[in-house]
Design a protein around this nucleic acid. Sequence first.
DNA 1: GAAACCACCGAAAACGTTTTCGGAAAAATA
DNA 2: TATTTTTCCGAAAACGTTTTCGGTGGTTTC
Lengths: 347, 347
Amino acid sequence: MNDTKLIDIAAALGISVTTVSKALKGYSDISKTTRSRVLEMADTMNYRPNANAVNLRTNETKTIGVIIPATVHHFFSSVLNGILEEAENRGYLVIILQSNEKYELEKKQIALLLQKRVDGILISLSNETDDFSHINAAIKNNTPVVLFDKIAKMVDCSKVVINDRKAAYDAVTYLIEKGYKKIAHFRGSYVPQNSIDRFLGYKKALEDRGIAYDPSLVYMCDHNSDFEDGYVCAKKLVEDHKDVDAVFAITDLVAIGIIKYLNEINIKIPDQIAVFGFSNWFMSTVISPKLTTIDQPGYEIGHRAASILIDEIAQIKEHLPVTHQIVELPTHIIERESTLKTVEVPA
Amino acid sequence: MNDTKLIDIAAALGISVTTVSKALKGYSDISKTTRSRVLEMADTMNYRPNANAVNLRTNETKTIGVIIPATVHHFFSSVLNGILEEAENRGYLVIILQSNEKYELEKKQIALLLQKRVDGILISLSNETDDFSHINAAIKNNTPVVLFDKIAKMVDCSKVVINDRKAAYDAVTYLIEKGYKKIAHFRGSYVPQNSIDRFLGYKKALEDRGIAYDPSLVYMCDHNSDFEDGYVCAKKLVEDHKDVDAVFAITDLVAIGIIKYLNEINIKIPDQIAVFGFSNWFMSTVISPKLTTIDQPGYEIGHRAASILIDEIAQIKEHLPVTHQIVELPTHIIERESTLKTVEVPA
DNA sequence: GAAACCACCGAAAACGTTTTCGGAAAAATA
DNA sequence: TATTTTTCCGAAAACGTTTTCGGTGGTTTC
């Protein structure tokens, strides 16, 4: 049990705990000589301050809490990497919790984090969440909160997002400009807002280019917005609409399901049907044809959210006014094979 | 600042903090009536015990630390999900750290976790780590450690692993029994042990079946054992060996790189060359042809490791003797298209 | 009616720090 | 030499709990 405390160092040196503590923290009213004696003794005795005692006394834990709604995969693992990197750099520890898209669990976890006295909270809201009193409680408790990805506009705190509507709008506009006429959309369920926004971007792009919006071209992938969804909806799509020439999927996973099905039935991508994904996950470069998609900067989202949170923690500590930021990270189109028609060689 | 403490409840009720504390913790020397009064008042005042004070007093934090060597992706995200799930169920919080395969960072992070007084540590070692004094320091400090995936045999603690050598042996044996004669291996670098073990399993399987081991059929994927590695080594392979008929890759990622290349140059999988992966990551069902692979149960590894750790924490608390376990989780072959030759239709 | 017992409560110490405040000795000034 | 200033150190309180130990007052026992 290698557990030396201030009092042990003090005893070994024949001085008081006060002096030891001050020496370690670099107080100016300690002489050079005693300071160096303390430092050396602390080193040889392998002293590590008891974080609990320090936390209790100083009322800060150098720890932030992160709540993500879903399993650590795909998008959220990138976000997490961004958070972990920034936290490491700034000297913070991170506690991770999963709400599994459940409001009650999310609420309980916020309470838990507050009880643990984390210095701040990063959260992407669950799909069920439509009451924000637990978030406001944290904020009122002087614990800053930064929302990312799945946010609530009405909560007064910093947020880091992408513009889903614009990104979808850009994607569909791109397809139209490439000459595609009949563009289907494989959408997500009615929650969260992100899936609605992507749908709205799709619709707006069509309307702005004078293409009539046709509800029968919109397929709901509400299973899990996953691979299977794309596969089965693609099947329905080609049965319903012989002449569709492109599809914009809410997610790369869905898009890959589509590609899989079209490959199986020998429909040429993109010559017969083009496929456009969303997120730029790893698999999108692995599939054949490689998937055109929207780059969703998960790592940057996490990095930025953590950075803002830690800034706010510092501001609160200094009793400075905290200025909330709404950061909208840019997305852009990653053009790959699934929308690039092979050039016709003139005869 | 919604921050009620024991003393506030005591004041509101005109009793002592002692009584409040005991009532909340269900001590038997508090009358039913005062207990219920306290409980109700605690509820209306929205009392949450200050975890730091509790931790300091009780010397336990209900928190475990997790150190993973690489980015949260693929295998480690599954492990993480298993850990998070078990921790949630058992009432533990989890702090995540990434060592980025650096020994020095890993060492620093262990010290940090001990300083934070986590109740236990879960760690998969970095590739650089060949000195284990930091791990032993934690154990000596009465903080149980469970090693998973990348372990060190010499450290005296519980471990959760798969048998890489056997899994590889099984894979190659499977290929041989399927009739493949000239089987290449795309191996990982000389660290960690897992990659060596998979190589040894490959070699042993060949020898046991009377196939001479040919070093020129082994390619080193030491870049990152990733997609690119597989792609470029596949290119070399088909140039070097016209007659190779199967390849066993250290990782699904590498295998997918191989498939990608073979698809591009129109080599039929598996009719000309079969491909066998390792890990059963998500993409292996997405690629064409679907990849035969070894199922590496990341979720179970995390789940099990966390479970053992929390058990040991309880044992230590009760001053019971701790019994270390070495758990070897079973793997099995997931047979898919990449090794299933299309049956010849008899004329 | 004294002795023994029980049910209930609270004072106080402890966990390991940080920080305020005052005080002693040494140095500088007069 | 007497006074002021500077330098350095330590006592003690505080952070919010938990838990030991003792002490009431009331009830039971003989």
